[in-house]
Structures are given as C-alpha cells and as structure tokens.
C-alpha cells in the first residue's frame, strides 16, 4: 500500500482502464482499434497543454495559467495564415507559433512580476488580449493547413497516432526536466516554499518566468498541431482546454498546493477524460446527462484518489 501511495498516477490509469473496458463491453469489442486510436489522438492534445499547466501549478499556490486556450488559438491561427497551405512554409509557421508562445509567456510573467498581479488574474487579462489578437488576425477565412502537415497530424505510425508520439516525446522531456535536471529541482523547491527557495540562492524569478514561458510554448505547440489536425484554426478551438488542462493535472495526481508534480499521471488523466466522454456517447446519453456524469466522475475520482494529508 505504501508503494501504491507513492504512485498517485496509478489511479488515473486504473480509472482510464476501467472506462475503456466498459466502453468496449458495450460495443462488443468491435471498435477496439478505432476507440484506442481516437483516445490516444485526443488525449495527446490534453497531454501537451496539460504538461505546461502542470509545470505552472507546481510553482505553488495561486500559480495557474488561464491564457492557454487563447494562446493555442492565436498560435494556430497565425501559423496557418502564414503558411497559407504552402508546404514549403511549414518550418517558418512552426517557428512563428513557438515565438508567439515565447511572447505570451514573457508577457504573462511581466504582468505577474511588475504589477504584482495574482497569476490567475494576470493570465486572464492577458488571455483577453490574446483572444482579441486572434479574432483580429483570423478575419473569417478558414485556411487549410499544408497537405504534408495535415497528413502528419492525422497520420499514424504502426497504428500509433503521430500526435500521440509527439505528446509522448513532450512527456519524456518533461519527466527528465522535472526529475533529473536542476531546473526540475528548482521548481519543486519553489513550489514547496518560495521563501526558503529564495534564501537557498535559487534564481526564483528566472525559474518562474521560464516556467510560464514553457507553459505558453507548449500551448502554442498544441495549438499548431490541433489546428493542423482539425483542418484549420477556429476561434473557439482552445476553449475546452481551459478546464481540461487543469483537470488532467489534478486528476493525474499533481498537488494543487504545488511542489509535487506527476508526469505519468497526466497521460492517465487525459486518456480517462476522453474515454469518459466517448463511453457516455456510446451509451447514447443526451448532452445534459453526459455533462452531469462527467462532472460526477471527476469529483468521484478526486474524492477517492485525493484527500492526502496537508503538510504543516
């Protein structure tokens, strides 16, 4: 039991597994490949943006990035507009998306630091501005992604969707950064006690700034591929990732109080969240009932898996 309690991510995988089995029982195993592929694909986007959110939440109480959906939208919109369907411009488009992430991250932290605004309000205010920029740059037309990029985003290797592989790479890098690098130790230390971290000589501001930038870059990466995957950017394409990014982090076993993060759990939680939706769809419930069930299941998972003792 002690070994289990050291692996809080196990619960999210367990829950995802149970839902997977229940869904397949209903369909009689007919859609086993389709369901698994769809789950991996859609979970991948949650994993990419959720990982960024996890780093920010690890920084400690009050740290949260609400600008993720707007950043995704802006990055996806501007990148697709720049590429204009031309396969030769895939790399510049990608770089522009990443640059947007860098800019948003720096702007977010500048507000937090210079104006001493709580991160939740700073990123919220920032997201309004980014969303406006996206509306302004979008101007109606839905531009298709370059063919190669679109094919990549919906394609798969040996049955594993490309975006899932991409998300896995992000996860592995995040795991290494968090568990094996100095940077990872620094954010955990800041999340546990920012004052002690500062006194220990950790460059607190640099690390926090870097973390907000990292989160925004992952959001723009997610937006770039989500827009390519869905055949064009839409102004509301990031909307559902506001709650999703927070939900997967917390269900995955990362502490909301900060200083304790969990990379594998994000995968479990992302798979779980998508599977719940598709299970309820398979059973043919209508929209209202589906939402109620989703909510109750989220709370149920938190009540069973959460509730750890607080350090004083």
């Amino acid at each position: 039991m002690t070994a289990l309690s050291r692996m809080p991510w196990i619960w999210s995988f367990l829950a995802a597994g149970i839902v997977w089995v229940i869904t397949l029982m209903f369909t009689g195993g007919a859609s086993i490949v389709g369901l698994t592929q769809a789950t991996l694909t859609f979970a991948a986007f949650s994993v990419i943006v959720g990982t960024g959110q996890m780093f920010v939440i690890t920084l400690g109480p009050g740290n949260i990035d609400l600008s993720i959906p707007a950043t995704m939208t802006l990055a996806g919109t501007v990148a697709l507009k720049l590429m204009g369907g031309d396969s030769g411009l895939i790399v510049p488009g990608f770089l522009v998306a990443i640059a947007i992430g860098l800019g948003v991250g720096v702007a977010n932290y500048a507000l937090i630091k210079l104006l001493r605004i709580p991160p939740i309000i700073a990123t919220l205010a920032m997201s309004f501005i980014i969303q406006s920029a996206a509306i302004w740059s979008n101007r109606g037309l839905r531009i298709r992604p370059p063919e190669i990029l679109g094919d990549f985003a919906i394609g798969s290797v040996l049955g594993v969707p490309n975006v899932a592989i991409l998300a896995l790479v992000v996860t592995v890098l995040a795991y290494v950064a968090l568990e094996k690098s100095l940077y990872g130790r620094w954010i955990l230390a800041i999340g546990q006690n920012i004052r002690a971290a500062r006194m220990a000589g950790i460059p607190v501001d640099g690390v926090r700034c870097g973390t907000y930038v990292l989160c925004a870059v992952l959001a723009s990466l997610g937006g770039y591929f989500l827009a390519s995957f869905s055949g064009g950017a839409a102004l509301n394409m990031g909307a559902e990732y506001l709650l999703m990014s927070i939900a997967v982090v917390v269900i995955g076993g990362t502490s909301v109080a900060g200083g304790d993060s969990n990379v594998p759990g994000i995968w479990g939680a992302s798979l779980f969240m998508f599977l719940v939706v598709s299970m309820l769809n398979t059973y043919g419930f209508d929209a209202g009932f589906r939402m109620i069930m989703t909510g109750l299941i989220i709370i149920g998972v938190i009540v069973t898996a959460g509730g750890r003792t607080v350090r004083f």
Binding site: G295, I302, G307
Partner: peptide, 27 residues
C-alpha cells in the same frame, strides 16, 4: 463539508461541479 473533510482542492471539485450544473441546466 466534503472539501474540508477530504482536504480536497476546491478548484477541482468546483470544476467538476461546473459540468454538473451545466448538465442540469441543459436538461
């Protein structure tokens, strides 16, 4: 009561409840 007794993060519990309230409203 639940948030207090189980020491849960209110953000997540209310996040879940937002689905429940929306679902009820749609019904």
């Amino acid at each position: 009561v639940i948030i207090h007794l189980r020491n849960l993060p209110a953000i997540v519990v209310t996040l879940g409840m937002s689905f429940v309230w929306s679902g009820l409203a749609v019904l």
